[in-house]
Structures are given as C-alpha cells and as structure tokens.
Design a binder for these strands. Structure first.
Lengths: 193, 193
DNA sequence: CAGTTTTCTTGAACTAGTTCATTTTATTGG
DNA sequence: CCAATAAAATGAACTAGTTCAAGAAAACTG
C-alpha cells in the first residue's frame, strides 16, 4: 500500500520533516482520488476552481481558448506531476482536461493551506513550486520568441520524447504556437535528424 | 519624510497589520537606496543575484540575451513597482538595467525572508506576488501566440500609454517579440487609430 | 549650436508560418 | 473485423514578419 503510493511519496518529498503517518492521514482525509477517461474535463473556463491536482497515472493538459475559439495548450502534466490553477480563487480562464485515461488526486486549496500552516518549512515549498513554474514559463516565452518552430520542436523532442509519443500532434503544435499543418511539415523534414 | 516615502507606503500595504515604526526601522536597516543613471546595470547574466528591487523613480528593464546575442525584454518596472530575480539564489540568466535615470531601493532575499517570518500574514503576500507575476506572464504568452503583433502593440498602447512614451521603440519591439523595423511599420499604419 | 551618436523610417527581397482543400493513414467502438 | 471518425500529410496560394541597406530625424554632449 504505502510502497507504491505515489502521492504519499510526493508529499513526503515536499515535507521531509513531517511524520509519515501524519502525512498519510492528511492524504486520506483531504485528497480525492478520481479515475477519469480520456477527454474528461476537470475544470473549465469560467468556473471558480480551487483544487490542486496530482497525477498518479495518465496525462493532462491545461489550455485556454482565445477569442477566435482556438485552443492554446499551456502545459502538460503526466504521472508524478502536479498542477493547479494559480488564478485561485478567481474564476479561471483555463480548462483542464485529460489527454489519456488518468488517475488523479485532488485537494482543495484551503485544505492544502491549512496543512502547510501546520508543518514547518512548508510555506517555502509551495512558493518554490510557483517560482519554478514561473521560471519555466519565462524560459518558454523566450524560446518561443527567439527560436524558430523547428528548433523548439527539436528541443521538445530531445527533452521530452515521451510527450512526443503520447500527445497527438495537434496538441504539440498548439503548445509550440504553430499550426498543426506546419508542425507536420517540420516533422517530415526533421525525421532523419 | 514619512509622507512621501514611497517604499514605506509600499511595505505598509504588503503588511498592513504591522506597526509603522517597525516597518520604518526595517526599511532603514535593510534597504539600500541607490541613485542610478540611464543604462546602468543592477545585475547581469551569470551573477548570483539575491536582491529584490523597488523602484522609487525611473524605469528599469529586465532582459535576457539569446544565443545569437539578441536581447529580449521580459518586463519593465516603473515607479512604485517591484521586481526581483526569481531564479534566486541560482546564477541568473537575466540582466537588469535602468532605461531612465532612476532611484531604487534594494534588499537582500535573506533579509526579506527573515522579516516575512516575523510578520504575521506575510508569507502569503510574497507568494501572491509571484502568483500574480505568473498569471501575467501566462497571459502574455497566450497573447503573443494568439494575436498579431499589431494587436499586441495596440493593447500595450491602450493599457500602458506611459510606457509607449517613455521607452525607445526598439525596447518595445523586443518586448512584443518583433523586429524594430516591423514595429515602426505597425506604428506608421496605426497612427490614426 | 555643431557634431556625434542614437533612434526611427522606408523600401525591396526574402522566409517562416498560415490557411484552405484534399487525400492518406491511424484509431476507435460496436 | 468493418465502418466511422479522428489524426496526419501534402500542396498551392497567401500573409505576417525578417533582414539588409540606406537615409532622415531626434537627442545628447561638449
């Protein structure tokens, strides 16, 4: 049970000083486990979502619709990764959807904060998460501005070959900020590289 | 003195519960005031910077160089705004430079954290700042991906006319992710609008 | 206020990426 | 396993944005 309980291991890494059984109780009491099939929405634009998600299995994507109804994928989260809507508690502009059938654990912002308040050293770990997310996004912005779509695709392919395998191409295209047709052409011409 | 002490008012808004004289002492003991002329570097790429900045007067920009030596402006900060390098304490990839002659207050990350630890409700305000920065960046990424350069320029002009006035055009171009020449053409054709 | 440097403008030739339409290939569910 | 649907590929015509080069306008500096 405890051995392959991914979320517990994740929480433990966040709060290494805390007692394991305390953490276990916390997870059992506050996290909700859900088994979801492909293309299920976890929350969507306009809702006031205050939950944070941990992916035990599967693959999720967070996207936004622009005025013309086009989707833009902001990020993907696979097994072992977490993701929340940082707009909390304002209504979100984003939609969270499973790309594959998935198992996720979710917790309400409030409960997470209560818990963080109890455990020493916890405040920082949540700030660190946002900080890392921020840096990641900043790097991505610069990459998109300064590199060609081909370079960005090759970078993604090198660093996340698994995502290339698991995601439909048009989701990758939308993440890279190019049309699906153009990505297809990029892939064709870089296949040998 | 106290009346027009911008940084004190800023800090007070962050920690409304704290005693004014405590805050005043904190500012005096820990913030360093600097008068800087145009195009002065506050920190630059490769350095391990752990300071946070408050702009009392003037205008700063944070930028990064890509592999080809081209600059990309990530953000601007004017009077009343703050900015720090969130990569702290890792060596930063960014450079912070004054665009106009400016007066800034800076504080070391360590001292800021110490203080936050002392004041109740403080942990959140710093997390909130990062969170807002994150959301801002996310919006900007989506804007750059989903809108044309012309739309992005007009948005900036509508929402920050002062920046359009104060920044040289090529800095705005770099912020919007287009060449200076192209921005010049955009401005020419949208002048009447 | 003249001279220098920095910033902005403009045009021509080019390239990265889009859009639309059609066909081919995979994937899925019954 | 077949039919339906979703995803990927491909070509042609187009557009947004780049690059280079040169000149004009502004903005500092002594």
């Amino acid at each position: 049970m405890l051995q392959n309980n991914q979320i517990l291991r994740y929480i433990h890494k966040l709060y290494p000083a805390a007692d394991i059984s305390l953490l276990q109780g916390f997870v059992e009491d506050n996290y909700k486990r859900e088994v979801l099939k492909k293309k299920t929405l976890l929350f969507s634009s306009g809702q006031s979502n205050t939950r944070h998600y941990f992916v035990e299995k599967g693959l999720l994507r967070l996207y936004i619709l622009d005025r013309n109804g086009r989707e833009f994928n902001l990020l993907f989260a696979k097994e072992g990764q977490v993701l929340g809507d940082l707009a909390t508690p304002q209504p979100t502009a984003y939609t969270l959807e499973t790309v594959e059938s998935s198992i996720v654990y979710s917790i309400d912002e409030k409960h997470l904060q209560e818990f963080s308040g109890m455990v020493s050293g916890a405040a920082n770990s949540s700030t660190d998460l946002i900080r890392r997310s921020y840096l990641f996004l900043q790097k991505r912005l610069v990459a998109i501005l300064s590199k060609t779509a081909e370079e960005n695709y090759l970078d993604l392919r090198d660093n996340h070959p698994d995502l290339i395998q698991r995601l439909p191409q048009y989701h990758i295209a939308s993440y890279l900020g190019v049309s699906a047709e153009f990505l297809s052409k990029i892939i064709a011409r870089t296949a040998k590289m």
